[in-house]
Design a protein around this nucleic acid. Sequence first.
DNA 1: CCATGTGAACAAATTCACAGCA
DNA 2: TGCTGTGAATTTGTTCACATGG
Lengths: 193, 193
Amino acid sequence: MYLRCLRELQKEGRETISSRDLANRFHLSSVQIRKDLAQFGEFGIRGVGYAIAPLAQRLHELLGLNHKHRLVVVGMGNLGCALAAYAGFNDDSFEVVAGFDVDPRKVGSRRGNLVVRHIEEIDRVVRETSADIGVLAAPASSALACYEVLIATGISAILNFAPVPLPDRPEVRLKNVDLRVHLEEASFLIRAG
Amino acid sequence: MYLRCLRELQKEGRETISSRDLANRFHLSSVQIRKDLAQFGEFGIRGVGYAIAPLAQRLHELLGLNHKHRLVVVGMGNLGCALAAYAGFNDDSFEVVAGFDVDPRKVGSRRGNLVVRHIEEIDRVVRETSADIGVLAAPASSALACYEVLIATGISAILNFAPVPLPDRPEVRLKNVDLRVHLEEASFLIRAG
DNA sequence: CCATGTGAACAAATTCACAGCA
DNA sequence: TGCTGTGAATTTGTTCACATGG
């Protein structure tokens, strides 16, 4: 969150920002900001604020973004295609290297700058590309099977977009992404007034 | 989160569940579960556990899901189409009633069971359908303009999927959804080991 | 006897107040 | 003087221990 904000500030051409200004952007107290940022080292300049560039670089490293991660997308339906083409999934730190499906009508077709491959190829492709993150965007009915296939490739982490509970496995870091929950939050906020 | 879990349990045919069993599913302590659920009233049966159905109904109501919410999607690119067709956005509580774009090649075309309309029609459509939630899936370059257009319709809440900071407005509840952040978390987890 | 619900004890996070440096 | 950095006070959240009821 902080890194995202710092990147915006860099785009605006700023070189420093005070904890008070950050606090306003995040609706937090300035002390909270200072306590948080102090965790990462002493990047503040007394009387001035925080030097944006070195702090951003530190957060970048802490998040492991200095190493490039290669992604494979499993399930090239609407959501899979959207994610494969998503700018945030294709930049200096992340790159979608392949998309997989079982539907013979999709296999071989171009989606964006990616050719959809058959799921049977996934083992080989993950090995050849050194992909380390799997994006699970298959329909609910086949999500569990795709999860097992992804684990079998030996991939490091899996992002699950299917609305299905998946069992934890020690050999992979599983992160569930529930798009629905944001709608429910909106619904709650509307009620709350 | 609890509601989602209770729905799963209902599908499995269970009628009650203990705080200990819930704790295992969520990797929390059973006392934590009881403290949480106690906030919503006394739904527990001593010696047995929690009655799933009434508790689920209570959470359903608290989230405002007993009233049906109508959604409009602005920006019918990959992501907009995926969200418009997403099952979690089309059920008893939510329904995507329209999708908008400016691209004349898209306007008039069918995407799923929706006909893409021109953004100029949005005021009328929101009024006629009583839509209360706007889903902003436009590209970064036009996200701010689309945000203003959505606010002008008088809609209650906006879910922003564009990776762009939008200014808070008192007349609308803005909820930013950042898909990229999940990848960064995965990256961090991989580094952390 | 089993599992909930809750005051009391404990731990964690936030805020306050101010020392310290450009 | 302005803003960071941090111990101390305060608030918030979690865990413990046990009373309560089916």
